[in-house]
Design a protein around this nucleic acid. Structure first.
Length: 103
DNA sequence: CCCCTGACATCGT
DNA sequence: GACGATGCCAGGG
């Protein structure tokens, strides 16, 4: 057993790391899987603090409607990364009915 | 301690 | 389906 219990942050990182390529998860979904029901905002805040060099697939996390919540140029890059991964888009939103991550 | 803000979600109109 | 209001949680001033 672990000598120290994982912090909520680590559980969030863990869940995000598990999102398979070609699929996306919503902030609320990640929060719930991380054992933080209603902690969607916390997930967003956590991801915003990630270093630019992180290898965590944070770009696979979108809002409940499939839209990109990350504002500005960074959001534009996230969209491009998703497209490069083969994620299907409907206008500015991800086609959740086809690309949503389900366990 | 109060107030505001943010990579959110949900409901009513 | 767009919009505004409300709920929620954590930080920062």
């Amino acid at each position: 057993m672990p000598t120290t219990d994982p912090t909520p942050e680590q559980r969030i990182w863990q869940v995000v790391a598990e999102i398979p390529p070609g699929t996306v998860a919503s902030y609320g979904q990640v929060a719930e899987l991380a054992g933080l029901p209603g902690g969607a905002r916390r997930v967003g805040r956590c991801l915003s603090r990630l270093p630019a060099e992180t290898r965590l697939p944070w770009h696979r996390v979108v809002n409940a409607t499939g839209g990109i919540s990350l504002p500005g140029e960074a959001g534009h890059r996230q969209r491009q990364r998703l497209i490069d991964e083969g994620i299907a888009f409907e206008g500015d939103r991800v086609a959740l009915d086809r690309c949503r991550w389900s366990v």
